[in-house]
Design a protein around this nucleic acid. Structure first.
Lengths: 211, 211
DNA sequence: TAAAAATTTGAACGATTGGTAGAATTCTAC
DNA sequence: GTAGAATTCTACCAATCGTTCAAATTTTTA
């Protein structure tokens, strides 16, 4: 297996997506797999597809990765590691609930837009995880949703938000809103993710109709 | 000792008593497939899985269905046929935009809740469609979204909705909200789909904060 | 440069896949 | 009951899957 120093690799902003020669690393495998899984699904993507995308034979993958499911596990891990910590900091910050919600939406939108393929896989291929890791994902997913609920609850308690809406439903609603980005968002589209996040926050806080 | 192996074999070969005796029809195949596709994905679901769910061998499926992709096509068709026409009627009705939006949300929420497995497949397995049908789906999907955009545009023109929100973004937002139902909605949960739809419409029209 | 270590290849494996065709069975109408 | 149609089963195919592993190759080290 491979030494851990790979994880300290610099983040590659540009990706020669096609059959160019990339240095084969765990990170490169995970990135390529995320794109293919997002596009064709986990079950319909073969290891040969992934290897072909990286310009190697599928046997080479097994030097960096234990098996196919580990690739999926690593995708889930990357999503969690970029999602959880920033949200936790927002929730624990000492700012008004409305501001918390705005920042939380901005954060989640940014993750959904930046990590679009991995995010798509995250919400699509959960059933293919097995063993203890599958259970861990369920818990951390719930904990993530719980953060949003907390913000809404806090806003209701402080009198900033209306109390006639169930925080759970509101959370599901806004998460659906953001997660749906992966279905339509294009990086070179009309609006930046920041602008979209602002619109979403604006829509959720003030509504569509005039006061 | 060899004989024990034989005993194990006979035990293993016994029929799994999960067999439901339903009359095999195209509709039954599509329904069973939708559930399995939604749960395990199109690529990871075999025709033997579907046949087994119906208490039949996979050969029998081919009498009612041309191939695996046709099953997928039929799932898409069922979603479209229950979605499009009612929405069209709502858009063309002579009622205020706010009322239209409320009914449209109720309609789409109901579809997402009632046809949950088929709906999940609809938004998940589109890449597995090929040929002219794939292109048709893209167009009809866009037309469906366009109906929502129309409602929002109409509301802005009439002065009922705020003009500073792009109808496209609002549409993506509310569709994401509703479609996300398939990820968490349970028919026996705390709220009925009607109640959830009301909350969504309420949230979208009036917002989270007090006026 | 040569030995050692790291990485990739290429072939092979057992299992499973979607799909086919003819035999076997069940159902329907007379 | 029996013929004939409708339906399902059995057996098989070629392709592809994830995975393994010794050999070949490339990279690093000395």
């Amino acid at each position: 297996m491979v030494p851990d120093l790979e994880k300290l690799d610099t983040i590659t902003l540009e990706k020669p997506a096609k059959v160019k020669k990339i240095r084969l690393t765990q990170k490169a495998i995970v990135a390529a797999a995320a794109t293919l899984f997002a596009h064709n699904g986990f079950g319909a993507t073969s290891l040969e597809d992934i290897a072909g995308e990286l310009g190697v034979t599928k046997g080479a993958l097994y030097y960096h990765v234990k098996n196919k499911e580990e690739i999926l596990r690593l995708i889930f891990m990357t999503v969690l590691t970029v999602s959880e910590e920033p949200l936790r900091r927002i929730v624990e910050a000492e700012i008004p609930p409305a501001e918390k919600l705005r920042r939380a939406i901005e954060h989640h939108t940014a993750v959904a837009a930046d990590r679009s393929p991995a995010m798509t896989v995250f919400y699509r291929e959960q059933p293919h995880l097995t063993g203890p890791f599958a259970r861990e994902i369920v818990l951390r997913k719930k904990a993530y949703e719980r953060y949003f609920e907390q913000i809404v609850e806090e806003g209701i308690k402080s009198g900033d938000f209306r109390p006639d809406l169930d925080p759970k439903i509101v959370t599901f609603g806004l998460l659906g809103m953001c997660n749906w980005l992966s279905q339509w968002y294009k990086p070179n589209g009309q609006y930046s993710q920041q602008q979209i996040a602002t619109m979403f926050a604006n829509l959720l806080q003030n509504g569509l109709t005039y006061p």
